[in-house]
């Protein structure tokens, strides 16, 4: 059997053509640093961080609407903690809270059910941000709202789907040779969708887990495929990812949501890359306008180039100088899953 040691040795000594692998998911980016993967592989294998942090790609106008909501009398914004420091055109939710805005951090969207039932005089809105990993949980939330006849809880969506985003990158960015596909998004959407992508874009699409060994094995498989001129989907996270994904979760998403054009911070509209509540469930929507969103990118911030894999965070002139986690300029520095923040915490600046 091939041992981790021999695989590492081969990857370290790889001297073939340069290979650029995009890891789509922020959790992979973190794990690559945590496990020191870059130091284990040849400099000819470049790992590029992609668009897989939902917080980083949320439009500033979306944050503005949440801020506005939080400052209204008897209104309250419920959110994941990650969203607190992302800037709208002027304010973050943390700043609006400091100004008296009503914002509560929840660990699960489902926690919103209890909170809203306990406080019937407050109008709540959950900031429904996320990719396919989280979207079924918003579907469960809508189901609970209906079941319990809750009148004071709605969601404001900024929901993104990963396949249109990867297709966008494959079409518009010519410098990515292979994809390390997002593990937990794939748990929901399944592995078979990537087989079509591999065929269409003629690149390897390898699904990997998050342990160091998972990632090394996935990189090794990508290098092997490229060296042999292969371009296939390979699922290397079979403990969690099946060919068809989580059917129950997919059916629930489909019941409540439909595809829509969506705005990605720094990039613009990507066709069909978002989800919005279906018309029959519009009453549960607190004013999502995904396709009309606009974005104010702070001067000098290169988040879009980072998200599209054109530059590494360190190549942004503001990285570590004007922009750091304590004083973030762009969204990619704010979120725990954002490429700039992860690089900052792990690199000597």
């Amino acid at each position: 059997m091939k041992t981790l040691e021999t695989i590492k040795k081969e990857l370290k000594e790889y001297d073939g053509k340069n290979i650029r692998i995009m890891e789509v998911c922020g959790t992979h980016t973190s794990s690559i640093f945590k496990n020191g993967i870059r130091s284990l592989i040849s400099p000819r294998i470049k790992l590029i961080s992609g668009p897989g942090c939902p917080v980083c790609v949320t439009a500033s106008s979306y944050i503005d609407r949440l801020v506005e909501y939080s400052l209204k009398d008897n209104h309250c914004v419920l959110t994941f903690g990650d969203m607190m420091k992302v800037k709208g055109s002027e304010l973050t939710l943390t700043e609006s809270k400091a100004m008296g805005g009503n914002v509560k951090i929840l660990y699960s969207p489902l926690g919103a059910v209890k909170v809203s039932m306990k406080n019937p005089d407050t109008q709540f809105v959950f900031a429904a941000v996320g990719f396919e990993t989280t979207i079924p949980i918003y579907a469960l939330l809508i189901e609970e709202i209906i079941k319990n006849n809750i009148k004071n809880l709605r969601i404001m969506t900024s929901l993104k789907t990963i396949i249109p985003a990867i297709s966008y990158i494959c079409t518009n960015e010519k410098n990515i040779d292979a994809f390390l596909c997002p593990g937990h998004v794939s748990v929901i959407i399944g592995s078979s969708v990537y087989s079509e992508m591999a065929l269409k874009y003629r690149k390897p699409f390898v699904i990997g887990g998050f342990e160091g060994g998972h990632i090394i094995a996935a990189i090794y498989e990508i290098v092997r495929q490229i060296s042999n001129n292969e371009c296939n989907m390979k699922n290397m996270y079979q403990s969690a990812v099946t060919a068809e994904g989580n059917e129950k979760a997919k059916a629930l998403i489909d019941k409540y949501f439909e595809a829509a054009d969506d705005y990605w911070r720094g990039i613009g509209i990507i066709e069909g890359s978002g989800l919005k509540l279906r018309t029959e469930y519009k009453d549960f929507d607190a004013g999502s306008t995904s396709s009309e969103d606009v974005d104010v990118t702070p001067a000098g911030c290169k988040c879009a180039d980072v998200i599209l894999g054109r530059i590494t965070p360190q190549e942004c002139p503001l990285f570590g100088k004007a922009c750091s986690p304590l004083n973030a300029v762009g969204a990619c520095m704010v979120s725990s899953e954002g490429a700039c923040g992860i690089w900052y915490r792990n690199c000597e600046v």
Binding site: Y107, I137, G209, E211, A240
Partner: peptide, 30 residues
């Protein structure tokens, strides 16, 4: 697998065993 207060999938294999079998598969492929 738990994400945001919800189980999103039942795990089919032990992760450690999975990684070992990955290396095995890689050798066979090579």
């Amino acid at each position: 697998l738990i994400h945001a207060g919800c189980a999103i999938e039942v795990l089919k294999k032990d992760m450690a065993k999975e990684i070992l079998s990955l290396f095995n598969d890689l050798e066979e492929e090579q």
